[in-house]
Simulated scan of single mutants.
Amino acid sequence: MATTRLQATPLGFQVLLALGTVYVVWGSTYFGIKIAIGSLPPLGMLGIRFLVAGVILFAFLRLRGAPMPTARQWGASAAVGLLLLGGGTGLVTLAERDASSSVAAMVIAVSPLFAALFARLWGERTGGREWLGIGVGLLGIALLNIGELHATPLAALLLILAPLCWTFGSQWSRHLPLPSGLMGSAAEMVTGGVLLLALSFIMGEKWSTPTAASMWALAYLIVFGSLLAYSAYMYLVAHTRPALATSYAYVNPVVAVLLGVGLGGETLGALGWVALGVILTGVMLVAWPKKEVPAIKGTT
């Protein structure tokens, strides 16, 4: 019987950079979405956001010599785009019509729990410390939600369904024939954007002249929320553990609340600030590198 030791791989610079991007940028997009839908239809706004970002990234990659996705890869990209961008981001955007940006980010923090559960469908294991981190993070979310930040029942339902779609799509994407590298992100945003615009048309969303604030928010969501952060997230999905890839859901509420308090006129009491500290503790438990563990191989 042979025995080998597998050492835990420390978080590399690219992983840390991707984590920092999704932590900060996606935390701010909740506030950006709230501003954008002030004068733009929710699904239509998202459709434009992802379609424009996807076309820009797709054109850039093709000019750099990236191969055109195959028909099978386009189909897989459409499935992932529908789940992540339509079901995930789309439901959050619809919910923000009746919920604050802060509470939207707080409810989405259940994503790491769903990610760990869905990962088990494909035989991936979640360690004890990760489960502890998930539990601590959810405790922080519960404390944060005790205050005055609340959503309507329909908005709360949409915010619960959103991470289910997002995390299932994220885990499924690891087993689908997607285009390699950033071309996968581009194809998902192009197909997801088209699907969202189709849903906007089917639902009869009304368009009117947008305000300057909504247009600036849309531009921010396209460049930073989609081109930069979405590509960083798909890198994390492909190269890190599910609980770590979705740990952004614990930091996003911190950023969202700070923006809501600083720019949106929301208030946060002492219990809320304690909750934010608990949330960050949960992130540290999830993100901390695993200890080296023995792996025993042999026959019986």
Rank of each mutant, 00 (worst) to 15 (best):
R5I: 12
Q7L: 14
T9M: 13
P10T: 08
L19R: 04
W26F: 03
S28E: 14
F31V: 12
I35M: 14
F50P: 08
L57A: 06
A59E: 07
R64Y: 09
M68T: 05
P69T: 08
T70C: 09
Q73I: 00
A79M: 08
V80F: 06
G81W: 05
G87W: 11
G88T: 04
L94V: 13
A95D: 02
E96Y: 07
S101H: 15
M106V: 13
V107D: 04
V110P: 04
G123F: 06
G123C: 02
E124Q: 15
E124W: 03
T126W: 01
W131A: 08
I134Y: 05
I134K: 10
V136C: 02
L138R: 07
A142V: 12
I146C: 01
G147E: 15
E148G: 14
H150F: 12
H150G: 13
T152N: 09
T152D: 03
A156N: 05
I160D: 10
L164C: 11
C165T: 01
W166D: 05
Q171W: 07
L176N: 04
P179W: 11
S185G: 02
A187P: 10
V190S: 14
T191K: 10
G193N: 02
V194I: 06
L196R: 05
L196F: 01
L199G: 02
T209V: 06
A212H: 13
A212F: 14
M215K: 13
W216S: 13
G225I: 03
A229E: 09
L236G: 00
R241N: 03
A243V: 00
V255H: 11
A256Y: 05
L271Q: 08
W273S: 14
I279Y: 01
L280W: 08
P289E: 03
P289K: 12
K291V: 13
P294C: 01
I296Y: 11
G298S: 06
G298P: 00
